[in-house]
Simulated scan of single mutants.
Amino acid sequence: MIRCVGGIVHDPAGRLLLVRRANAPGKGLWSVPGGRVEPGETDSAAVTRELREETGLSVTVGTLAGMVVRPAPTGFFEIYDYRCQVIHGQLTAGDDAADAAWVDAAIFATLQRDGALTDGLAAALSDWNCLPSS
């Protein structure tokens, strides 16, 4: 298993922070920001680092929303997604993100309909009550 983390962030309007993946796996698809946990790194430190690298935002890491297992090129990704709140920063795509955006419920539904979300994202966020609320 390859341990990974993700950050689930909503703005005050209830929109969800998503990034479009610039690299495999999931290149070109939208997902919550996140990535691999480095050796010796805590989940919280990894979420904080990944959000800063991919979105330019500094966050406070909160509670675990849920965990999913997804196929990896060799083995499986074990992804722990945490609820987060923005402390400061300006949203800008960086590092492994081709784009970053605050997505409302209508745009999320369109991305889902068009197959533009990473596999299983909508179902997991729905199960965890983390879909955009606006």
Rank of each mutant, 00 (worst) to 15 (best):
D119I: 07
D96C: 09
A100E: 06
G94C: 10
T42Y: 11
T55Y: 05
R49G: 01
F108W: 05
A65S: 09
P25S: 00
V47T: 08
V61G: 04
D43G: 13
V19F: 06
A124T: 12
D127I: 12
P25E: 00
D104L: 04
L91D: 09
F108S: 01
E53D: 05
T118A: 03
L64S: 06
F77C: 04
Q112A: 06
A65L: 08
M67C: 15
Q85K: 12
C130Y: 03
S126Y: 10
P73E: 13
S133D: 08
D81I: 10
I8L: 06
V32P: 03
F76Q: 13
P73W: 11
L64E: 05
V68F: 01
Q112I: 04
G40S: 10
A45D: 15
G34K: 01
P39N: 10
V19W: 09
A105M: 05
A100L: 06
A101M: 07
S44G: 15
P132D: 09
I8S: 00
V86S: 08
A100N: 03
D43R: 04
S58N: 14
L121I: 08
E38N: 13
L111M: 08
E41W: 07
P12V: 11
T74M: 14
L57S: 05
L111A: 07
A24W: 06
A13V: 15
M67L: 14
T48V: 12
S58M: 09
I79G: 04
P25K: 00
A22Y: 10
D81S: 15
P39K: 10
A72N: 02
M67N: 15
V61D: 01
R83S: 12
T74P: 12
S44P: 14
G66H: 02
H88I: 12
A106L: 11
G40Q: 09
V47L: 02
W128K: 02
G94P: 12
M67Y: 11
E50G: 07
R21V: 00
R20P: 07
D104Y: 02
S126G: 15
G62F: 05
P39D: 15
R21Q: 04
C130F: 06
V37F: 11
E50S: 08
R36D: 13
T74C: 14
A46S: 12
P25Y: 01
E50H: 09
C130W: 02
L29C: 03
P132N: 07
C4M: 12
I2D: 11
R15D: 14
G7D: 00
P73S: 11
A124E: 07
L117D: 03
M67H: 15
A45R: 14
T110L: 02
P73C: 08
V68T: 07
I8M: 04
A122E: 12
A24I: 07
P71T: 04
Y80F: 14
N23V: 14
E54V: 04
G35V: 05
I87R: 13
V32D: 01
D114I: 05
G7P: 02
R3H: 13
G26I: 00
T74I: 15
G56A: 07
E53H: 05
L18C: 07
G62L: 03
A45E: 15
A100G: 08
C130D: 10
T55H: 08
G94A: 13
G35K: 04
P71W: 02
R36H: 10
D119V: 07
Y80V: 04
D127R: 10
G115H: 01
A24S: 09
G26R: 00
V9R: 01
R52S: 11
